[in-house]
């Protein structure tokens, strides 16, 4: 169990040591986003911009235009919707090398309630040309994703959660921008893609990101116990989207289930449906927040109430298979 944001703070410091061009910006939430760790190690390369997110994004764009590699962090609601136009006009349009790493995405922000629960951020970032969008499943995948973002030239949006989450990223797996990973069963992405048609015979294939990977692993265990064969793929890289793996999974499965801690509109489920509708029309079940705002409650209570836990997902998948 570890919070992805703790891993973020740690890897930022490693990156800071390796590359003097890495600079970090925050908007009065450095203690929560964990950029405070970088601030301590590299006070000269850390800029607290105060509660002024729009300015922060513009300044990040300016730093990038001069060759720096800025990481700009705040909560996901403030890192996207609030500054959408600054990101669109000043960062994405110019293709500037800004890394937006947002924490406190999704419902599991908990008791702060709807104003602080970003459920549209992935959709907003995904629609921007040239923007890479990553939603890692745990601390280890976060570390690798942040490293990959630093090495990638161009704007990147990474969404992290608030709470500590179980370690689920498969041992020895590597995160690559544009590629998903198989979490279950123990076969590789490449093996799934290379498998001849209808040989893997999955009843259901889960395509998930963020905390929902763990919930889908739980769901698949419940389904397996009932003799239903399931696979779980982590699609942390939502954009670029791993169409090869998505299509291969659809071809090997009776049902595809896309799961995310985000609105069912425009996020990972949207990407899966777009890919399959155009290339291989298949049955898709979207698990996510049904076009509504969140509310106060504990993270767990909210996941349960919104039908985003393993048992609930398993029930829905079973019903859809019938």
């Amino acid at each position: 169990m570890r919070a992805a944001r703790d891993a973020y703070g740690e890897v930022l410091v490693e990156l800071g040591k390796e590359n003097a061009d890495i600079v970090v910006l925050d908007a009065d939430l450095s203690s929560s986003t964990k950029t405070s760790v970088f601030a301590k190690a590299f006070p000269d390369r850390f800029f607290n911009m105060g509660i002024a997110e729009a300015n922060m994004m513009g300044v990040a764009a300016g730093l990038a235009s001069a060759g720096k590699i800025p990481f700009a962090s705040t909560f996901a609601v403030f890192a996207t919707g609030r500054v959408y136009d600054q990101i669109r006009q000043s960062i994405a349009y110019a293709g500037f090398n800004v890394k937006i790493v947002a924490t406190h995405g999704g419902l599991t922000v908990g008791p702060d309630g709807a104003t602080h629960q970003a459920l549209e951020d992935v959709a907003l970032m995904r629609v921007l040309p040239g923007m890479t969008v990553i939603v890692p499943s745990d601390a280890e995948e976060t570390k690798q994703a942040v490293r990959a973002a630093a090495g990638h030239v161009g704007p990147v949006y990474i969404r992290l959660g608030r709470e500590a989450v179980p370690d689920v990223f498969p041992a020895g797996a590597t995160f690559e921008i544009g590629k998903g990973n198989m979490f279950l069963p123990g076969i590789s992405r490449e093996q799934v893609i290379a498998a001849p048609p209808s040989t893997l015979e999955f009843d259901v294939s889960f395509i998930a990101c963020g905390v929902m990977v763990k919930e889908c692993l739980d769901a698949s265990a419940l389904l397996e116990a009932e003799g239903i064969k399931a696979s779980v793929a982590g699609f942390a890289s939502i954009k670029p989207f791993d169409a090869d793996l998505c299509l291969a999974l659809a071809r090997q499965s009776r049902l595809v289930v896309a799961a995310e801690e985000h609105s069912v509109v425009g996020g990972l489920g949207g990407a899966v449906c777009e890919c399959l509708a155009e290339n291989y029309p298949a049955r898709v079940l979207r698990i996510g927040v049904l076009d509504r705002f969140g509310e106060s409650g504990s993270g767990r209570e909210l996941l349960e109430a919104y039908g985003l836990t393993g048992p609930s997902i398993a029930r829905k998948a079973k019903a859809a298979l019938r």
Binding site: P111, D112, G113, H116, E295, S296, G297, S298, E301, L302
Partner: peptide, 13 residues
């Protein structure tokens, strides 16, 4: 306050 189902959301609604 801040409990599931309460009208008293973490931020005023």
């Amino acid at each position: 306050l801040r409990k599931m189902g309460s009208p008293l959301q973490g931020h005023p609604d």
